[in-house]
Simulated scan of single mutants.
Amino acid sequence: MIGSAMLHAGVMGWPVAHSRSPEIHGYWLKKYGIQGSYERVPSDPSDFETDVHRLRDSGWRGVNVTIPHKEAALSLADEATPRARAIGAANTITFSRSGRILADNTDAFGFIENLKERAGASWRREAPAIVLGAGGAARAVVHALLESGARTVTLANRTQSRAEALATAFGPPARAVEWAGIGEALAGAGLIVNTTSAGMDGRPPLDIDFAAAPADVIVTDIVYTPLITPFLDAATARGLIAIDGLGMLLHQARPGFEAWFGVAPQVDETLRALMLAP
């Protein structure tokens, strides 16, 4: 076993029972022989700051943060990474040895690592991208794409004002188009990303016509339940490269695990199969 003292980390949310993070980190703890634990920590929004301080004072190494705490996690941090500041939210908190709260957002990292793994050389970093949606996940994806060198990132959301606000927040080369104008925007795209919850189990599908999309465009969905959404089904039917969202979930967990447990974990097919098991 690595280390002699039990190391503790976890995931905070409200609710948090649905989180798959314990399975991911539990797999890595076992794989790398680390004496540690990773637990779900339910935290009501009114108690979040108190709960974070309690865990820090109890000797925990850090926590992942999920809905609805991501913005609050950033605001209470003593220090935050540039990407967390740019995205405006944090999903990973690390407690320093001196007790400082360090905030990061690894969603952008997870998104890019999933693209690199699943698309390989087919993904052209500079290619124009289209992002559907304008919520917190969209912010992370837009940041990731611009940091990676995308020439343009076109945003479309059913509530147009939200897409416009997000484009303004990032500035050129981000731009917003009307939802009805998606078809025209598809013509020059190299990457199309769904960041909405449409197509998730129990929700209506996202109805997009890929007829105008180039034959080499990559289509990806950050939704992973179901693994293959109607959005990805439609892309596959057109013969396009389709990438599911499970890898984003797996890769975004890597930086936190390394910060808390001292080992840089790898996403492998065994972990992927574990997450897909009934």
Rank of each mutant, 00 (worst) to 15 (best):
T154F: 08
T220V: 03
A77I: 06
N91H: 03
L274E: 10
R238E: 14
M248C: 03
R54I: 05
S46I: 11
W14H: 14
F257K: 00
G13I: 05
S4I: 11
E23L: 15
E178V: 11
I241C: 14
G10T: 03
S43N: 06
I218H: 07
D244C: 09
F109P: 00
L115S: 08
G62I: 00
S75Q: 15
R97W: 08
S161P: 01
T92E: 06
Q35R: 15
I208Q: 05
A73Q: 06
M1P: 09
P68N: 08
Y32M: 09
V217F: 06
G202A: 09
S197Y: 06
R20C: 12
L232N: 02
E117Q: 10
F257N: 00
E126P: 09
G26Q: 01
L155D: 00
R162A: 10
R124Y: 10
D209C: 06
G188E: 11
L7P: 02
P214N: 10
P42G: 08
S37G: 15
H69M: 09
Y224A: 07
I67A: 09
V131P: 00
L271F: 12
L55T: 03
S75M: 12
G10C: 01
L191T: 01
A187F: 15
G262T: 04
G188K: 03
G262P: 02
F261K: 01
T168H: 13
G183H: 15
W179N: 07
A264T: 14
E178R: 14
L246I: 04
I24C: 04
D44Y: 12
A264H: 12
L246W: 00
I208N: 02
W14A: 13
I208S: 04
G202Y: 08
A150W: 04
A212C: 12
T196G: 10
R238S: 10
V52P: 00
P204V: 06
G190P: 00
G10M: 03
H251Y: 15
E126T: 13
D47F: 09
K116M: 10
A165T: 13
A213I: 01
F109Q: 03
S98W: 05
P230Q: 11
W28I: 01
W260T: 01
A80H: 02
R254A: 11
A176W: 10
R175A: 13
T92H: 05
G135A: 07
G245K: 05
D47P: 02
G136L: 06
G99A: 12
A215K: 14
R100V: 06
P255N: 05
P82G: 13
T152F: 07
A187I: 11
S197D: 08
D201F: 12
A242H: 05
F231M: 13
A137D: 02
G262V: 02
T92K: 02
I24Q: 03
K116V: 13
D201I: 14
S46W: 10
G245F: 00
P42I: 07
G190A: 04
G110T: 08
L246S: 07
F261Y: 15
P255H: 10
L102D: 01
L206V: 06
T196C: 05
G149I: 06
G13T: 05
P45E: 11
